[in-house]
Simulated scan of single mutants.
Amino acid sequence: MPNTTAASDRSVVGQLSRPASFLLALPLILLLAFAFLVPLAKLLLGSIFAPTLTAEQYLRIAQEPIFVRIFLRTVQTAAIVTLLAFLLGYPVALVMSRLGGRAAMIVAACVLIPLWTSVLVRSYAWIVLLQRKGIVNSVLLNWGLIDQPLKLIYTEGAVIVAMTHVLMPYMILPIFSSLRSIPPELERAARNLGAGSWTSFLAVTLPLSLPGVYAGAIMVFILSLGFYVTPALVGGPHNLTIATLIGQQTTELLNWPFAGALAGVLLTVTLGLVGAFRRFLRLGKRV
């Protein structure tokens, strides 16, 4: 009886009223408002009121083919990066979930240490690898596989490879979390019923890990849509994405209204994808 009373007292103490909860969250709300919401609102309003109410900036995006191509290229690049991150990251997450002890710590360190390294440093590392006199071209020349250096840097392929490397931890960690939550007895039961290793993986492990796959995919895809540093450094001026185009409009051309319109379209696409993802995930849970 005393234990029950103590537990109930702790539950009452742990419950906070709405005003108290709001006061605790108020500093974060104010920081988010002043650091993100207010500048974003000012940028979006500047694209509509330039200086009077107009849709000229948004019509320009739809009417000029180059901007439509940049948007489509960005979405295509994000989709390819997401697919590659899944194909390369799922086996790593599967190995992480089934290892233990020191081996698991080593694999986890290999995933987390690049995540803790600056994106700028990792992007410059790819420049060192892929430039005309870089490591890759030097090795190929020394082995006699090519006669002259290949153009590896400042290409769309370089952007895809570098972005996949940078964003892969965001795919691995959610999948790893889902795989770790799967009871090992389920796969053993499938084996006892006669299923092979591949069949048990397809019938048990993969379906139960899909929430982690969905979370990692949407995270990588959305980050790829707005990625700036790696495409700007590795892709160069001839492989513009939406983020690099917005940066060009603000820093070089000083066309803030048009940059706000680009940001508004990007934000709309991102929110639409997040909403579609959440709806798809709810439907998947019902099934």
Results as ranks from 00 to 15, higher is better:
R286P: 01
Q76M: 13
R122N: 05
M168N: 04
I222K: 08
Y154S: 13
E187I: 03
F34W: 12
S123H: 07
L129Y: 07
T77S: 02
F280Y: 09
L130C: 13
Q148W: 12
N192M: 14
V81W: 00
L88D: 00
E187G: 07
S97T: 10
L152M: 07
L179Q: 04
V159H: 08
W116S: 11
Q63V: 06
A93I: 00
T77A: 07
N239W: 05
V68P: 05
G264R: 06
K133H: 15
G89T: 03
F67L: 10
V139R: 10
F36A: 11
F49G: 03
I80A: 00
F280A: 15
P39S: 09
Q248R: 15
L145E: 12
V92Y: 05
L167H: 01
V119N: 03
R278N: 12
G216K: 04
A125E: 04
P257L: 04
Y214D: 04
S17Y: 05
G144V: 02
F227D: 00
S224C: 05
L115T: 07
F201N: 02
V38Q: 02
P91G: 09
F201D: 01
L40A: 11
G134I: 02
Q148D: 11
Q248N: 13
A79L: 01
L24F: 13
F71T: 08
A104E: 14
A79Y: 01
A103Q: 10
P39F: 12
A217H: 08
K42I: 06
L23K: 09
L112V: 10
G236Q: 11
L88A: 09
I172E: 04
L94Q: 14
M105A: 15
Q249S: 12
P39L: 06
T251P: 03
Y124C: 07
Q148I: 12
L129I: 09
L30W: 06
A85C: 14
T199M: 09
I80H: 01
L43A: 12
N142P: 02
A103Y: 09
G235Q: 08
G275Y: 13
G144P: 00
V220K: 01
A190M: 08
V274L: 15
P211E: 07
R282D: 05
A203W: 05
L99K: 14
S209E: 06
A41S: 13
V204I: 06
T54F: 03
A261D: 01
T74S: 04
A158L: 15
G272C: 12
L87G: 11
L206C: 03
S138F: 05
L112G: 10
T4E: 10
A190Y: 03
L26M: 15
F71L: 14
L254Y: 15
A259T: 11
